[in-house]
Structure formats: structure tokens, C-alpha cells
Design a protein around this nucleic acid. Structure first.
Lengths: 198, 198
DNA sequence: TGTACATCAGTGAACGCGCGTTCACTGATGTAC
DNA sequence: TGTACATCAGTGAACGCGCGTTCACTGATGTAC
């Protein structure tokens, strides 16, 4: 098992980022070791450091990758055709609150524990902030299209911001609590609130 | 330094729970070691296990303690006199979204990372669920008092649930992101939404 | 094009560190007579 | 009440474990002639 070609090495590097993103989203950054990732790829731990300077360097790239993935999924929802504004604003909230497999947990929620801990240096924290702000702006833009007029409406924006917070809060609680009757009721309330936005 | 009296030992035990709660809320459960807690109390690590079977046993008690503390604080807000319903519903949201010292971070948010990790066994997870559900019920009850009539109004409840999610979501983002202009705007939107509840 | 050497992706074992937990021990407190 | 013994809160050092990281080594790939 000697040296790999540059092509193979580049593929392996990508695989590390993708696998890490998946595992980080499913289990949380601090519950996934470098060895966990490399073992899943059938490689040894030492090889990791031929590609990344440290675990946090990988974390940074994995964050960017995950946020891009989420942003793309939101974009696909946003491009659908909608009959009326209420349907439009409900669509993205419904998509977000859908139950998804662990590997697709919202990055804003899955990565927060790592960002809060002191263990994370500036790099990954910065990636988290940028990613979260990006999703927020994307959400607000989506909601603005619910307005027939092209002018920005500050009341619409305010409602959108409340919905964003409510949506994230409901998902956060779902991750932390697991299923609970009252929580499903909260999620439904957020969905309905989004639907009656006009 | 021989054996302590039963009275002293009981005091020490309480101090462990209080100190742990404070540090856990400020830094997160997984970033605070048993040794951190005991050192702050001027005791050695070994003494800890005369009081608790394991770290998670302490975590469970610290969770219950913190949630009781938060619930009591909410209760004090709830007992104030209010002139109109909007002022009443704004009061608790404003209180919740107030910037507080690290040691008073909302337990729903501060403890979530530990509950999500596999490291937590059933005990502490259960304490978290009970505590969170308790705060939720307290919030909804507070909001119901905004209605002049004594009958439960399902529309009021729905608004209350959305506000709860939005409030928690906004605080969650604040913890994860630190200060950001757009986030303050989101927090303001949530506060205003609460104020116009009637 | 073929040959000789340099490069470097991947290996596998080791290191250092912090953590939760254990343990033999100490000596003041508690208890039995 | 006083004495002799048992209890057990607290000590301080050690243990085992998983983690991030390092390192000498291997041998196929890349490069220079």
C-alpha cells in the first residue's frame, strides 16, 4: 500500500469532508473522532494529517460543506411554483420542520454545541456564523417573494424573522427532547402561523 | 483534615450541586470536569464520590436545580401587575431575551448539547425533558392570563406556542452566534410580536 | 522511450493529555457501653 | 459523664480510556535526464 495518485488523493480528501459532514450532522462534532471518520473510509488515522492540519481545519470545511448543502436544498424548495403567498411561506417552514434522517440534521442546530464549547478555535466558529447568517438571509429573501409588490415591506420582514426564530427554536427543541406530544403541537402551531402569512 | 460532621457534609453536597449548576450553565456540562467543580470548592476530586455515584448523577440533580431556579424567576415575572395583555406577554419574552451573565444561561439551551450526546444516560435526559416541558407549560399559563376571559382560547395558545419557539430559537442563535446585527433585529422582532399579542 | 531518483499518500504504532473513576489511607465525628 | 471503638467525609495518588496528534517507515506515483 504505497503512495496514491494525486487524483486518488484528491478524491479521498473530498470523501473525508463528505463523511465528516454526515457524521458531524448525525452525531455532533465532539462525538465523532478523527479515527471514526477514517475507519468508515477504510483508512488509518495517520493518513488524515496528510490532508488536514488539524481536526478543526476539517471541521471548518465540513461546516461550509453542510451549510452549502442545506442552502441548496432550501433553494430547490424556493424555486417551486406557488399559487398564493401563504402556500409559499408555508412550504419552506414545512420543509424545514420535516422529520429527516440524522445525517441531514440542520447544521445550525447540529453544530452549535461545538461552536459554544471552548474547543473550537476561530476558524470553525467563523464558518458557522457565515453559514447561519446565509441561511437566515435566504429565508428572508424567500419570504419577501410572498409579497406581490417588489418593494421590501418591513412588516413582512418582521414576520419572517419571527418565523425564522420559531422554526429554528422548534427544531432545536425537537433535537434536544425527542418526540413529545406538546412539541408536535408547537411545531404545528409554527406551521400554521407560516401558512396564514399573507 | 479528618471526617466532617453530617451537617457540614450536607452543606458541602448542596454546594457541589449549586456550583455545578452555575458552571454547567456558563460553560456547558461537557466542558466542566468533576475536578473543576471540586477545585472551585477547595476540595479534592475523590471527595466527590462520597456524595454522588457518578458525574451523571450530579448532572441530573444540577439540571433539576437549574430548571427550578429558572421556573422561579419566570414566576416572579408572572406575578407582576400588568395594565394590559400586550404588556403582560411582552414582559416574559423581554425577561427571557435579556442579556444575562453566563451562569444564568437558559437551561433549555445550555444543557441541550449534553442531552444530545450519547454520553448522557437516561437520568439526566429525563431531568432535561421534565424541566423543559415545565418551562413550556409555565409560559403558556402565563400567556393565558393575558386573556380577560377565563376560558382557554385555542388561538391564544397557538400564538403562545409560536412565541415560545421563537423566543427559544432567538436565544439559541444568540448563544451559538454571539452578537450580530441581524440577530438583534430578530430578537427585536420577537419582542414586538409578543407586545402586540392581545 | 527507458532508467534512476525523489516525492509523498497511506501505514501502524506510539505519545501526551485530560477525563471519570477507584483506592488505601487519615483522623475528626458519631455511637455504644 | 467518660472511655473505647466504629464510622465515614475528605485526601492524594493512581488507573484506564479515548482522544488528537506525531513519527519512522513503505512503496507506488511522479519527475528529470
Amino acid at each position: 500500500m504505497g503512495r496514491s495518485s494525486y487524483e486518488q488523493a484528491a478524491k479521498n480528501r473530498e470523501k473525508i469532508v463528505e463523511t465528516a459532514s454526515r457524521l458531524f450532522r448525525a452525531q455532533g462534532v465532539d462525538n465523532v473522532s478523527v479515527s471514526d471518520i477514517m475507519t468508515e473510509l477504510g483508512m488509518t488515522t495517520g493518513a488524515f494529517y496528510k490532508h488536514f492540519e488539524s481536526k478543526d481545519a476539517l471541521v471548518q470545511e465540513a461546516f461550509a460543506f453542510s451549510f452549502r448543502q442545506s442552502g441548496a436544498a432550501w433553494g430547490r424548495v424556493s424555486e417551486r411554483k406557488f399559487d398564493d403567498p401563504g402556500e409559499r411561506s408555508a412550504a419552506i417552514v414545512n420543509y424545514y420542520l420535516q422529520k429527516k434522517p440524522p445525517a441531514q440534521t440542520c447544521p445550525m442546530i447540529a453544530f452549535a454545541p461545538h461552536v459554544c464549547s471552548e474547543a473550537s478555535d476561530g476558524l470553525s466558529t467563523e464558518a458557522y456564523r457565515e453559514g447561519t447568517e446565509g441561511l437566515f438571509r435566504q429565508f428572508v429573501d424567500h419570504m419577501r417573494k410572498s409579497r406581490p409588490s417588489d418593494e421590501a415591506d418591513s412588516a413582512t420582514d418582521q414576520t419572517a424573522q419571527v418565523l425564522f426564530a420559531a422554526m429554528v427554536g422548534a427544531n432545536f427543541l425537537a433535537q434536544a427532547m425527542g418526540d413529545a406530544k406538546w412539541l408536535r403541537s408547537v411545531q404545528d402551531a409554527v406551521r400554521e402561523e407560516a401558512a396564514l402569512t399573507e
